[in-house]
């Protein structure tokens, strides 16, 4: 059943221009972050670590969550149109499978985005001739970012399901991202979903921001992922639809 649901979600994405946003938006920080890095070489210590912070600082802090929000809103778009909620709720498909299939598609998109971010980072570094070996820990940061992205994805899927508007959940994601800076500054970043991205991606420090806190990060991420998933399933089961 789940496989069939995932296939169905993938079908909905066919011929959509979502891939353009997912591939195009990460190119902006890669190009501009690289130019910014080159323009500030007298203040920055040259190397991969500082190139990483320049490329991912604004991306992870402000724009990654709205991008995930855009993908999630798109996945619920069809249900919110033309009385499709009635069709969906009368289909012999359990609520858990509907949500899980959407989450699976989001996760696949996130993995592709993260691979793309990694490729852009490597290519930009090689193009401007950054010396030293490529930092392998970057792969870990990308992986942590994927997990953080999955948490935000689960939350945004819930918001996009509850809010019938396509656009409102995206602005909520941007406001959440800005709020994440405050949460991280107050030391509660590990328990605020939107802050997980900045911490996971290690976007504003050259050193590992989760030194000694990786277990808390993982537990918090998995816990929130389950919480938002169950919340979505429960809402879909208990609340009557407005078609």
């Amino acid at each position: 059943m789940l496989i069939r649901c995932i296939r169905c979600e993938k079908l909905k994405l066919k011929h959509s221009i979502l891939w353009l946003a997912c591939l195009g938006i990460p190119v902006i920080p890669a190009i501009m972050g690289t130019f910014n890095y080159m323009g500030n070489l007298e203040t920055l210590t040259p190397g991969w670590a500082n190139l990483w912070t320049q490329e991912t600082l604004f991306y992870a802090n402000f724009f990654y969550a709205p991008l995930i929000g855009l993908c999630c809103a798109y996945l619920w778009r069809l249900e919110h149109r033309n009385h499709n909620w009635n069709t969906l709720m009368s289909a012999p498909v359990p609520a858990w499978a509907i949500i899980l299939s959407k989450l699976a598609v989001i996760l696949r998109t996130l993995i592709l985005i993260q691979i793309w971010v990694g490729v852009l980072f490597l290519v930009s570094g090689k193009c401007i001739g950054v010396e030293n070996r490529f930092p392998v820990e970057t792969l870990g940061w990308l992986l942590r970012g994927t997990l953080a992205g999955a948490v935000i994805g689960a939350l945004q899927l819930f918001l996009s399901m509850v809010i019938r508007s396509f656009a409102l959940p995206i602005i909520l994601a941007l406001l959440g991202s800005i709020g994440s800076i405050y949460a991280a500054a107050k030391g509660i970043g590990l328990f605020f979903p939107y802050s997980l991205m900045m911490l996971g991606m290690n976007s504003n420090h050259a050193e590992n921001m989760l030194e000694g806190q990786l277990a808390v990060f993982l537990a918090s991420s998995v816990g929130m992922l389950l919480l938002f998933y169950l919340l979505s399933v429960l809402y879909l089961k208990k609340t009557d639809v407005k078609a």
Binding site: L20, G24, F58, Y59, F62, L67, L70, I170
Partner: peptide, 13 residues
């Protein structure tokens, strides 16, 4: 909305 998001990003950079 994609243009709006990209615009925020490009404007900031």
């Amino acid at each position: 909305l994609g243009v709006g998001l990209a615009g925020s990003f490009i404007g900031l950079f």
